[in-house]
């Protein structure tokens, strides 16, 4: 379990860095979605199931979708 938490924290930070540095906005958005998903796993492990469900539905799901929609209406390159 502890290994899982360490691993997810590392993946979270890497995905955040990737979201900041990626040149392709779509990649960046996907990295952001992964970040949100891992945060929601962490929330679950921290005994916050309500927040975990909300973060998974809103942060990882709907938020990513509207980002993709916005990129579809604009451009993909940074």
């Amino acid at each position: 379990m502890i290994v899982l938490i360490y691993l997810s924290a590392i993946v979270m930070i890497i995905s955040a860095l990737y979201a900041v540095y990626a040149k392709d906005l779509l990649v960046s958005v996907v990295a952001l979605g992964i970040n949100s998903l891992i945060v929601s796993v962490l929330f679950f492990l921290m005994h916050a199931p309500d927040v975990a469900i909300t973060e998974a539905a809103i942060g990882a799901g709907l938020s990513t979708a509207i980002f993709v929609f916005a990129i579809k209406h604009t451009e993909r390159k940074e």
Binding site: P49, D50, A52, I53, T54, A56, A57, I58, G61, L62, A65
Partner: peptide, 14 residues
Amino acid sequence: TPGGGFPGGTIIAS
């Protein structure tokens, strides 16, 4: 149970 208005609404929106 865990959940409630906000995630429920978001699930319907999805």
